[in-house]
Design a protein around this nucleic acid. Structure first.
Length: 296
DNA sequence: ATCCAGGTACCCA
DNA sequence: TGGGTACATGGA
């Protein structure tokens, strides 16, 4: 067990929100200790005040995974400046409310492979169901690491499994998506790492070529696994929240019945700027209180 | 019981 | 391109 003391520049940091907000699905909290599996290793993290107690990671790995090397104040300042520039207003009530609720949230650095499968699994499901599904897949196909904790299966391991048993993990119709993506990655081992050297639009096109990966899933992977902080995944919550809190966005539908995926994403990028994806996470994490506040 | 969820593929005009 | 629908499953 090691200790990391957070500096002023690393604040605010909220471990609970960061690991439970629905960006990553396999962390579990028991008696103030979070346990997770990253790259086949068991990791524990807990936080009391400014001290982070951890095991399984080196200090550098911990900082990298939790993105503690990025100063939240700089991100916040950038987003606020863009809001002011775009709206002409001094501050944004909705965004500030989200920050008060969850300003300590960090967008963590996930492994591309597990992130890809996780978000294929996520479609048309609520977060508790997604967590259960992914944990069942790890339990079924991963290696036992100890204490009922399993590694996330690698592409070969998943590619070799049967559609029917995948469905027993609660995957439903997503089983074939998982299978096809696994097969593709197993046959093209450099697929995910090669995305690092591509532009965002190119990387997005590559991700969209996978069966079962649409715009929302591709954008989640770009944001969570490739640190493309300007990318804004648009799920049903964000769509509802943006159209409710920022009704001006409907002007962008231009004769169409509803805003398109891209209308919403582009509006967020115009409003929040180069950290729009980060801003999206703040809004997503605070969605209940924000929607309650807007009486809808 | 009914509705809905960090959507996508597929079809049609 | 935009609009509609089926899809398996589990949570609330």
């Amino acid at each position: 067990m090691q200790i990391l003391h957070l500096t002023d520049r690393q604040l605010p940091f909220d471990l609970d929100i960061t690991l439970s907000c629905g960006q990553v699905f396999r962390w579990m909290k028991k008696e103030n200790i979070w346990t997770g599996i990253v790259r086949g290793r068991i990791i524990t993290i807990s936080k009391t005040g400014r001290e982070i107690w951890y095991s399984g990671f080196t200090r550098e790995e911990l900082i990298h995974y939790l993105a503690l090397d990025i100063e939240p104040s700089l991100i916040l300042a950038d987003i606020r400046a863009t809001i002011t520039q775009f709206t002409g207003l001094e501050s944004d009530t909705v965004f500030e409310k989200a920050i008060r609720a969850g300003g300590g949230l960090r967008v963590i650095r996930q492994e591309p492979w597990e992130c890809l499968i996780s978000y294929i699994c996520s479609q048309n499901s609520n977060i508790p169901a997604i967590k259960k599904r992914i944990n069942l897949i790890a339990h079924q196909y991963g290696r036992l690491l100890g204490d009922d904790l399993y590694s996330f299966p690698d592409p070969q391991e998943l590619a070799e499994c049967k559609s029917a048993t995948l469905r027993e993990c609660g995957s439903g119709y997503r089983a074939d998506y998982i299978l096809q993506a696994s097969t593709h990655i197993a046959q093209n081992p450099s697929f995910l790492t090669s995305l690092n050297s591509l532009s965002v639009p190119q990387a997005r096109r590559h991700l969209l070529s996978l069966h079962g990966v649409g715009p929302k899933v591709a954008d989640c992977i770009l944001l969570f696994a490739y640190q493309q902080y300007a990318v804004v995944p648009v799920d049903v919550w964000i769509r509802t929240l943006i159209t409710t809190c920022y009704p001006q966005v409907k002007e962008r539908a231009l004769g169409r019945k509803e805003c398109s995926y891209n209308d919403i994403a582009q509006y967020c990028q115009d409003l929040f700027g180069s950290y729009a994806g980060y801003a999206q996470q703040y809004l997503f994490a605070a969605r209940e209180s924000l929607m309650a506040g807007s009486k809808l």
